[in-house]
Every structure is written in C-alpha cells, then in structure tokens.
Computed example of a mutant assay.
Amino acid sequence: MSVNVQADSSKPAGSGPNPYSDCGIGAALFSNTGWAAVTSNVIWDLGSTAITSATASPETCSGKNIKTALFIRDTYTQLVEESAAGDGMHLKTALNLVECGEAQQSNAIQAVRSEMGAALSNADYQGKTHLEKSSDFYNVINKAAARHCSV
C-alpha cells in the first residue's frame, strides 16, 4: 500500500494530531483517555483509519466530528427509531452537529432513512456490535449532509 502525504512546511514536524490517540473511532469514543483511544484504534482496524484521517484530513481529528460520533454512539437506538419514522429530536440534533441547516434537513432525513433502511435489512447487520452500527450511522449521516446540506 502506498500513501502520498504532503507536508505543511508552515508547521514544525510533529505538530499535527497523533493519529492513534487524536483521530479515528478511538478518539471519538475515548476523547479524554489516550490509552483507550489508541487501544480502540488498533483493535478496530490496526489504526489504518486513524492514520488516514491524520494524514489526509487532520482537521477531522477533533471538533464537530468527535462530538457527532459521540452523540451517535450514545443515542444510536433513538436515532435508528427516528430515522425509521422520518423525524425526531435526536435525528435533527445529529444533523445540526454536522452543520445541516434546518431548511435542508428534510432531504437529508429522507436520505438517512433510505440508507439506514437498506442497512437494517442487510443480513449481516444484526451481528454487528453497537460500535460498528454507530460507525455505520455516522457514515450515513455525513454522506446525507454532504449531498443535501451546504456544509
């Protein structure tokens, strides 16, 4: 596997995020516990997602992405129920976290509803862990926001 990384010469070497503790699903789940973030990232996918995040888009290693991931993890059951219904406070909050304006949320909700409906009907879905399901929902809501919201 080859990775092409461009260095930002305006910043000193090593000033970027630590990919294992500041990026990836580990940082989203354990933002205040570095060792747990590292462990989670390594267990999840040997840290490849965290490393990719740190090199390709270091701005995703903190801020709204972490808050969104934590919110989805903590309210996943409500989010799935509200997605099926096509409305709900948790769903709107998640869309607000990814900066989807109220005027655009209707189309984004329909996209989330459609994609989550397909995911839920997949035979492999029930065997997934809560963390895997939360990660899937995170990807779905970000995809819907990218398509239907001016983020």
Rank of each mutant, 00 (worst) to 15 (best):
E115V: 11
A36P: 03
F137K: 11
G88F: 09
V140T: 11
I25E: 03
S114V: 08
L46T: 13
D8Y: 03
L120Q: 06
G117D: 03
S135K: 15
W35F: 01
N65Q: 08
G127C: 07
T75H: 14
Q6S: 05
C23M: 14
G86S: 04
S134P: 06
N4C: 00
G24Y: 02
A13D: 01
A84E: 11
E132R: 15
K67M: 01
D45Q: 13
S62P: 06
D8G: 05
S15D: 00
Y138V: 05
A28G: 08
H148T: 02
L79F: 10
A119Y: 03
Y76R: 14
A7D: 01
C23E: 08
K64A: 05
A36N: 04
A28M: 10
G34H: 10
A145R: 13
A118G: 12
C100G: 05
C23P: 15
N4A: 05
C23A: 12
A111E: 13
L91Y: 04
E81V: 11
C61A: 07
S15C: 00
L97S: 00
H148G: 00
D124N: 13
E115T: 15
A28K: 07
M116P: 14
T93R: 15
T55M: 00
S40C: 09
K143G: 08
F71E: 02
A123L: 04
V5N: 12
I25H: 10
G14R: 05
N107C: 06
S83N: 09
D124L: 13
A7V: 02
N107E: 11
G26K: 02
S121A: 14
S53T: 13
N96L: 04
S150M: 11
H90C: 01
R147G: 12
S10N: 14
E81L: 10
S150R: 09
S31Y: 05
K143Y: 14
A50R: 14
T49H: 04
P58A: 08
D87F: 14
N96T: 06
R113F: 01
A50W: 09
A54G: 07
S48I: 03
S48D: 01
T129R: 08
T93H: 08
G86I: 13
L29F: 09
G47W: 05
V98Y: 01
N18K: 12
T49S: 06
V112D: 04
C100I: 04
K133Y: 01
R113D: 01
Q6Y: 10
A108Y: 01
D8M: 01
K92E: 15
N41L: 07
T52R: 07
F137P: 03
D22H: 10
Y125N: 07
R73A: 06
Q104P: 02
S2F: 08
S106E: 15
A146R: 14
V3W: 10
E115H: 13
D124W: 08
H130N: 09
L131I: 12
A69C: 00
S40T: 14
G63P: 00
K128N: 09
G16P: 03
V5M: 10
S135P: 00
A56L: 04
W44N: 11
V140N: 02
V140Y: 12
D87V: 08
V140L: 14
A144L: 07
V112Y: 05
I109S: 11
A118L: 15
R147K: 07
T77S: 05
S2P: 11
T52Y: 05
S121P: 07
R113E: 07
E99M: 12
Y20V: 02
A36K: 04
C100D: 02
M116E: 15
P12D: 11
